[in-house]
């Protein structure tokens, strides 16, 4: 047993030097399939998202055939929000996840309307939407206005870096990051920050495009992402490069098991993941105790 652990450990120690995932730790990092310097990645990612912000939701619907809505629903149902919750949604500029959480909390409140304590709690609910990109946040704020949520106190829009959050330690009940962690420069830093801001019993949930391992489906998926998506981006959003980056960055992201072990290394417990659509996306979850 112990021997096996030691060898596994050694392998873990050696393999980063061999495999390309190590680039996440070294001074060079990946931007899609290109290798770029660390400082450049965040700028380049920033540029991509500034470019796509206006068409972001339209393109999401096109690329996933509307499935991304179901994935986000699933994420929120796994979170099981409650009135009075302090939640942080990172990289959620367009507010997709935040609106769903708010909706879910409101429906819980309706269920227990006769209870006056819950009303007070509802006032305390805070959902912080944090995104590094102001353009994306603006899209989200506009959508909130359209939905009549512009004046809702529960929604707080914050511009900030997932690697250096401006929130206090042990201040959040929940942390979600949907389709965001792939784009950061240091995944470990993001995870450490998530662990830091969460309270005891708080949960970390990450929805991310991941790796398909089912034989035939994998080929089809590759074909779709490398031939269809960039062209779709060109036609619909008039921006091929950004969507080329998108599909490449998915392939660069660590596979489910590896990412789960990274979450565990950050200190989370009960680390689990669930594959949706055969691994096209995966929901990882962890608990801070």
């Amino acid at each position: 047993m112990a021997l096996r652990l030691v060898t596994r450990n050694l392998r873990n120690r050696i393999s980063p030097k061999l495999c390309s995932a190590s680039l996440l730790h070294s001074h060079a990092t990946s931007f899609g399939f290109k290798e770029v310097r660390e400082e450049e990645k965040s700028q380049m990612v920033g540029k991509v998202f500034s470019n796509v912000a206006s068409n972001y939701d339209l393109m999401n619907d096109f690329m996933s055939a509307g499935l991304h809505r179901l994935w986000k629903d699933r994420l929120v149902s796994k979170l099981s929000p409650f009135p009075g919750m302090k939640h942080l949604d990172v990289a959620g500029g367009t507010g997709d996840v935040a609106f769903r959480i708010l909706e879910s909390i409101n429906s819980i409140r309706r269920r227990a309307l006769q209870d006056p304590i819950n009303d007070d709690l509802q006032e305390e609910t805070r959902i912080y939407v944090c995104d590094i990109n102001q353009n994306m946040l603006n899209v989200g704020k506009n959508r909130a206005l359209e939905r009549g949520l512009g004046e809702v106190k529960s929604l707080v829009w914050v511009q900030g870096d997932a690697e250096a959050l401006s929130f206090e330690d042990n201040s959040m009940d929940g942390y979600t990051i949907a389709f965001g962690i792939r784009n950061v420069t240091h995944i470990e830093k993001v995870l450490t920050e998530a662990y830091r801001v969460l309270k005891r019993g708080g949960r970390f949930l990450c929805l991310e495009l991941s790796h398909v391992e089912i034989p035939v489906f994998k080929e089809l998926y590759d074909l779709y992402s490398f031939s269809v998506i960039p062209r779709l981006g060109e036609v619909v959003a008039g921006d091929r490069e950004s969507y080329q980056y998108l599909v490449e960055s998915i392939r660069r992201f660590p596979p489910q098991e590896k990412f789960a072990s990274m979450i565990a290394d950050a200190g989370f417990q009960m680390v689990e993941y669930e594959n949706l659509v055969g691994g096209v996306v995966a929901i990882h979850s962890g608990l801070k105790i």
């Binding site: 979170l79 708080g202 009960m270």
Partner: peptide, 8 residues
């Protein structure tokens, strides 16, 4: 503990 734990 944070009620979030219930989700797990």
């Amino acid at each position: 503990v944070s009620p979030s734990i219930v989700g797990s």
